[in-house]
Design a protein around this nucleic acid. Structure first.
Lengths: 209, 209
DNA sequence: ACCTGAACACCGTTCAAGT
DNA sequence: ACCTGAACACCGTTCAAGT
C-alpha cells in the first residue's frame, strides 16, 4: 500500500515479444479474476502471479506496482464504456433532443450492465489513488462527443451546451453508479433510464431559456 | 488490509470512563490529522496511535480495525452534511419550488465546502469497504426530509415526488462531488449551484407532466 | 530477453504482562 | 479498568542468479 523505502521506478515498458505479450495479457486477466473472486482487499500480487502462472518477479517486470495492475484494468473498462457512449452520440446527430438524451443514457447503462461483474469489482478501486484521474481523462473525449451531438439540435441554446453537458454528465453518472452500487435490477434500471431522459431533456430545454 | 487468520472480534464497546472518552476522541482526531497530512495510503495504525499519544494496543481497544477508524470519521462527516441539508429543507416548507431546490443545493455545497479538507482526505476512503454503505444509510433520512419539503409544493405531482427525489439526490451529489474532486473554486461552485437549481427545478416540473 | 523465488522492510493485529 | 509493546503473520517489492 504505502510506498516503500526506495523511490518508485519507471513504469515497465510494454512487452516486445510474442511470449511476453501473452504474459502481459495473462497477468491482466488474472487480476480481473482475482478481483472478481476475492474482492479488492483480497487482491494480492502473489495471488495474481500464481493465477497467471508466473512468479511475482515477472509480474513486476510488466507492472510497476499493484496500483498499476488495477488501474490498467480500470482504464480498459472505462474506455469500453466511453467508446459505446460515443458511438451512440455519433449515431444520433440531428435526432430530436429527447431521443439524443435517451440514446446516450441507454448506451451508458447498457455498457455498464454488460460488464456488471467488472463494475462491481472495480467499485472500490475507482476511488483509489489515480482512479478518478483515469475516469476524468477518458471522460473528456466523451463529453466532446456529447457536445457535438447536442450541437446539432435546434432545441438548445448553443452558447450553453458546453456548460450544460459538463453538469449533465456527472449527474447521469452519479445516478447510474448509485443505482448499480445498490444492486438495482434490470427493471429498476430501465425506470431510471426513463427518469434520466426526462431529467436531461427538461434541463437542456430549460438551459435554453 | 486483508483479514488475518483469526475471525474479526466484536467491535469494541464505547468507553465508559472520562479518561477513556478522552482517549477515544484523541484517536479519532489523530486519524483526521494523519489522513489530512499523509493521505489514505499513509494512514498507519502505528502512526495514528503515536499521534494520539497512546500505544497501538490501546487503539485496538477502541476500534476493531483500521477500517473502523476511517469509517467513524466518515460517519461523523456525512452526518454533519446531512444534518445541514435537512435543516435547510425544514426551513423551506411552502417556498416556491426553485427556492427549495436552490436552498438544498446551497446547503449541500456549503456543508461540503466548510469541511473541504476532510472531503479531500475522505475522498479515497469513501469507496472502501462499507464506505458507501455509511453514506447510503444516512442519506435515507435526508431523502425523506427532501420529500417532505417538496410535498408542500403545489408545483409538483405528489405521486412522483419520491421517485424524482431518489433520482435527483444522486444527480446533485454526483455533480458536486465531481466538481470537488476537480478542485473547483468557490466561484465555479456557485455557477454549479445555479445550474443544479435550473436542473432540479426543470426536472421536478417535468416530472409533474 | 525473460523468468525465478528467497530476502527485506514494512504493516495490521494480538495478547501476556503491567499499572 | 486501562494501557504497553514485543511478537506474529502477512504483503508489496527487489535483485542476484538462472534459462
Amino acid at each position: 500500500m504505502a510506498p516503500r523505502r526506495k523511490p518508485p521506478r519507471q513504469p515497465r515498458k510494454a512487452p516486445v515479444q510474442a511470449r511476453s505479450e501473452a504474459t502481459w495479457v495473462a497477468i491482466l486477466e488474472a487480476t480481473i479474476q482475482v478481483l472478481g473472486a476475492q474482492g479488492f482487499d483480497g487482491l494480492t500480487t502473489t495471488r495474481v502471479a500464481e493465477r497467471a502462472g508466473v512468479s511475482v518477479g515477472t509480474l513486476y517486470q510488466y507492472f510497476p506496482n499493484k496500483h498499476a495492475l488495477v488501474l490498467t484494468v480500470l482504464e480498459r473498462h472505462v474506455d469500453a464504456v466511453a467508446t459505446m457512449v460515443e458511438e451512440a452520440c455519433a449515431a444520433h446527430h440531428g435526432a430530436p433532443l429527447a431521443t439524443m438524451v435517451s440514446a446516450m443514457c441507454g448506451a451508458f447503462i447498457g455498457a455498464k450492465l454488460r460488464r456488471r461483474d467488472m463494475v462491481q469489482a472495480l467499485q472500490h478501486a475507482s476511488a483509489e489513488l489515480g482512479g478518478d484521474e483515469v475516469v476524468r481523462r477518458r471522460a473528456q473525449r466523451t463529453v466532446e462527443a456529447i457536445v457535438a451531438m447536442l450541437g446539432t439540435s435546434p432545441e438548445i441554446d448553443k452558447g450553453r451546451v458546453a456548460l450544460a453537458t459538463s453538469v449533465l454528465v456527472p449527474a447521469i453518472v452519479g445516478v447510474v453508479d448509485t443505482a448499480l452500487a445498490r444492486r438495482a435490477d434490470a427493471h429498476a434500471l430501465r425506470a431510471i433510464e426513463r427518469e434520466l431522459t426526462v431529467l436531461g431533456t427538461a434541463y437542456l430545454h430549460a438551459a435554453a431559456a
